[in-house]
C-alpha cells in the first residue's frame, strides 16, 4: 500500500486525456450527480436488501457500496455512492431513515471528510510498451502487485476522483481488468461519520 495516498497521484495531471475527462464532467453536472451517503445500520440479514430496494424503487443506481462491521458488532457502517435524479435524493434519505434497521442515513457529498478508495488495474503489456507501462506506474506512484510475462497489476489508492483520472490515463494501455473497492468515509477530528 502506498504510504501517502493523499498525494500519491498528483503526477497524473500531466497525463490526463482532456477529451475523456471533459465528457465525464458534463455528464456528472447534467444528471448523474453522484452522491456519497453514509449509513449506520443494524448488522443482520436482510438489511442490505431493504436498503437496496429504496434506491431501486426511485430509479437510483448504486455505483459503489462498502459495508463493514462497526465498532459495536451489532451495527454496520455502509458507504454508498449512488447516482440518479437529484430531486428525489432527499426523499430517499427520508425513506432510508424510516427503515427500522437504519439508525442514520446522511448525504456526505458536500462535506469536507476523508474519502478513500483502492483500485487494481490489470494491464496486458508484452514487448514494446512494457517499459513504458512500468515507468508510468512508477510516475503515478502506483504499487505493482503482480507481474507476469504478459501482464502487470497496478494498485493505487486515493480519492475516487483521483482514481477516475488514473483510469483515464491508463485507458490507452489495454486494461483487461479493473476493480475498485468503493469509497470509504471518515469524518475528521472528533466528529462521527454516521451521526
Amino acid at each position: 500500500m502506498n504510504q501517502n495516498p493523499g498525494t500519491s497521484l498528483t503526477g497524473i495531471q500531466n497525463f490526463r486525456s482532456p477529451k475523456s475527462f471533459s465528457r465525464k464532467q458534463v455528464v456528472i453536472e447534467r444528471k448523474h450527480r453522484k452522491h456519497t451517503l453514509s449509513l449506520y445500520v443494524a448488522n443482520k440479514p436482510g438489511v442490505l436488501i431493504r436498503i437496496a430496494l429504496v434506491f431501486a424503487r426511485r430509479g437510483y443506481n448504486i455505483d459503489s457500496l462498502v459495508v463493514s462491521e462497526g465498532k459495536d458488532p451489532d451495527f454496520s457502517t455502509m458507504n454508498i455512492v449512488a447516482s440518479g435524479d437529484e430531486k428525489v435524493l432527499d426523499q430517499i434519505l427520508n425513506q432510508l431513515n424510516k427503515l427500522v434497521d437504519v439508525v442514520t442515513a446522511h448525504d456526505r457529498t458536500e462535506d469536507d471528510i476523508i474519502q478513500h478508495e483502492l483500485a487494481m488495474f490489470k494491464i496486458r503489456c508484452s514487448g514494446d510498451n512494457r517499459m513504458q507501462v512500468l515507468q508510468l506506474a512508477h510516475a503515478l506512484n502506483c504499487e505493482i502487485t503482480d507481474i507476469t510475462e504478459t501482464t502487470v497489476i497496478f494498485q493505487a489508492s486515493g480519492t475516487s476522483e483521483k482514481l477516475d483520472s488514473l483510469e483515464s490515463v491508463l485507458d490507452p494501455y489495454n486494461i483487461i481488468e479493473l476493480v475498485r473497492t468503493g469509497k470509504v468515509l471518515m469524518a475528521k477530528g472528533e466528529e462521527l461519520t454516521s451521526f
Binding site: P45, G46, I49, R50, L53, R57, L99, V100
Partner: peptide, 14 residues
C-alpha cells in the same frame, strides 16, 4: 416470505 414482504411492510422479522 420476509423477503417477499420487504416492499410492502412497515417492518418484518424472520
Amino acid at each position: 416470505v420476509s423477503g417477499i414482504s420487504y416492499p410492502v411492510v412497515k417492518h418484518s422479522y424472520l
